[in-house]
C-alpha cells in the first residue's frame, strides 16, 4: 500500500509538472490579408518555422509559444508581413522557443531565419530565403523562384526544385539536392558533403564546390552536360564516357576530368580542395 502511495505520488508529480508546462504554453493564431506576391518574413531564435501554400490571399500564422518569456512582434506594411520572436529578460533556448506554422499564398516570397530550429518551406513559386546557424533546412516543391540558403551547421535538403535560381552556402552542413534544376545552381560548402541527384536540367549553370567535403553527383545517361571536375588534393572519379574538351588547366588522371555528354546543354563544374569528387551513373 505504501509502495502504491509512492507510485501514485510520482505519477501525480509528473502529471502536475506536465500540466504546468502545458499551462505555460500558449497557442496564437494571426491572419493577414495580402495582395499578389506578398513578402512574409519570420525571425525566430529558438524553434521551428514551417511554411506551406494556401489557396486564399491570406497569410495564416499559428504559433506555439513555450512561455511568457517570449512574445511575437507582428506587423503588416502594405504587402509585407513580418513576424519576430521577441525574447524578454530571462529567456533561454527552452522557454524562449516558438514554433511557427504558416500558410501563405503560393506566390509569396518568404524569408525565414532561426538559430537552432528547423526551417521548412514547400509548394511555393515565390522566392525562398532561409538563414540559420545550427539549422536543419528542408525545401521542396518550389518552382520558378530563387532559393537562397545560408547556414553554419545542420543538414540542408532541397527536393524537386524546378527552374530555380539556387544559391546555398554552408560551413559544415551536409547538402542534398534531389531533382534540382534551373538556370543557376550554386552550392558552396566547407567541410560538409554535397550530394546532387538529378539530370542537371537543360541549359543551366551548376557550380558545386567545397573545401574538404566530398561531392557526389548522380545523373542519368541522357544528361546533357559540359562538365569539369577537379580536386586539388582529393580523388576524382567518373562513371561516364565523356567526349574530350579543352580545359584551362592540365587534366591529371585521378584529380581532374572534363568533357561533354550528349548535347552539352548545361554547364557543370565540380571543384574541391581536398574532398573526393564522384560523377555517378544512375
Amino acid at each position: 500500500m505504501q509502495r502504491l502511495n509512492g507510485g501514485a505520488k510520482l505519477v501525480s508529480a509528473v502529471v502536475l509538472s506536465g500540466a504546468v508546462l502545458l499551462a505555460a504554453e500558449t497557442r496564437k493564431e494571426f491572419h493577414f490579408t495580402v495582395g499578389a506576391r506578398p513578402t512574409v518574413s519570420v525571425t525566430n531564435q529558438y524553434g521551428s518555422v514551417s511554411v506551406k501554400p494556401a489557396t486564399a490571399n491570406q497569410v495564416t500564422v499559428t504559433a506555439i509559444l513555450r512561455s511568457d518569456k517570449v512574445e511575437i512582434d507582428k506587423g503588416q506594411s502594405g504587402n509585407r508581413v513580418d513576424l519576430l520572436s521577441h525574447l524578454l529578460d530571462g529567456a533561454n533556448a527552452e522557454n524562449g522557443r516558438v514554433d511557427y506554422e504558416l500558410a501563405v499564398p503560393s506566390d509569396a516570397s518568404v524569408i525565414l531565419s532561426s538559430t537552432s530550429g528547423p526551417l521548412r518551406a514547400e509548394g511555393l513559386h515565390g522566392d525562398v530565403t532561409l538563414e540559420g546557424a545550427n539549422t536543419n533546412v528542408d525545401v521542396r516543391e518550389i518552382s520558378d523562384a530563387h532559393v537562397h540558403v545560408k547556414t553554419l551547421n545542420g543538414p540542408i535538403t532541397l527536393t524537386n526544385i524546378r527552374d530555380g535560381h539556387v544559391e546555398i552556402t554552408s560551413v559544415s552542413g551536409n547538402i542534398t539536392l534531389h531533382s534540382v534544376s534551373g538556370p543557376h545552381v550554386q552550392v558552396n560548402s566547407n567541410s560538409g558533403w554535397i550530394r546532387y541527384d538529378g539530370d542537371f536540367g537543360y541549359g543551366g549553370e551548376y557550380y558545386l564546390s567545397s573545401h574538404t567535403g566530398d561531392i557526389d553527383a548522380t545523373a542519368p545517361q541522357d544528361a546533357s552536360i559540359d562538365i569539369t571536375a577537379r580536386s586539388v588534393r582529393g580523388k576524382v572519379e567518373n562513371d561516364f564516357p565523356l567526349q574530350p574538351k579543352h580545359t584551362p588547366f592540365v587534366v591529371k588522371a585521378g584529380s581532374a576530368f572534363a568533357g561533354t555528354m550528349n548535347r552539352a546543354a548545361s554547364s557543370v563544374k565540380l571543384f574541391s580542395f581536398s574532398g573526393k569528387i564522384h560523377l555517378k551513373k544512375r
Binding site: Q45, T115, A133, T169, V171, N190, S209, H211, F249, F271
Partner: peptide, 29 residues
Amino acid sequence: NDEDAQQSLLNAYDQRAMLYQMALDRSLP
C-alpha cells in the same frame, strides 16, 4: 589565372562574412 581558385577565395570569404554576420546579429543568440 586559376579561375577555380579565384572563385574559391571569394566563396571562402563569403563564408567568413556569413559567419561574422550571424555571430554579430544580436537577434540571433
